[in-house]
């Protein structure tokens, strides 16, 4: 049996040590990321961005109540949770905006966090098309969640 031949305890401890290195290695990126995102929402720039996107929203038929969620989703995980909570409180989780936002939330992730952490971990300065491609995918995901929710919950 493979288990008895190899020293699993030292494998586990070795892995744990790697985990400590990884965790603290990510801390500088986390500080930069979280501070920047907090600044953005505290300064009122986020609200301004939401207001500026309202006409576009109406044009595309996106429920406008879910706009803060759509804007926050690629930027900050905890921020997106806070905005969706607010949406549930004001419009209700079973409203069309509530459902669309739920679908979007469940099928997308925080792009900024994932890409910053992944690329800074390997020390890559050039990220190629990773950011534009990810944001394109995010836009597709917003559109898909609107369309799918509309057809899934047809009266």
């Amino acid at each position: 049996m493979a288990f008895s031949k190899k020293d699993t305890v030292s494998m586990f401890l070795g892995g744990c040590r790697e985990g400590i290195k990884t965790s603290f290695g990510l801390l500088p990126t986390l500080i930069m990321l979280i501070v920047a995102v907090r600044m953005f929402s505290a300064s009122g720039a986020l609200d301004a961005l939401c207001n500026a996107s309202l006409p576009l929203c109406k044009l595309l038929g996106i429920p406008q109540e879910m706009l803060p969620v759509a804007i926050m989703r690629p930027v900050s995980g905890s921020g997106a949770i806070a905005t969706i909570k607010q949406l549930f409180d004001t419009s209700g989780p079973d409203s069309s905006a509530g459902r669309t936002a739920s679908v979007l939330m469940g099928s997308s992730d925080t792009i900024l966090y994932t890409l910053s952490v992944y690329f800074s971990h390997v020390g890559a300065k050039k990220t190629g098309y990773a950011f534009p491609a990810s944001f394109t995918v995010m836009i597709f995901c917003i559109a898909a969640s609107c369309v799918i929710t509309r057809y899934a919950f047809m009266p």
């Binding site: 493979a2 288990f3 190899k6 699993t8 494998m11 586990f12 401890l13 070795g14 892995g15 744990c16 790697e18 985990g19 400590i20 990884t22 965790s23």
Partner: peptide, 13 residues
């Protein structure tokens, strides 16, 4: 750390 440890075992085994 826990998951990195588990991964260490998974890789080794």
């Amino acid at each position: 750390c826990l998951w990195s440890g588990v991964i260490g075992v998974f890789d080794g085994v």
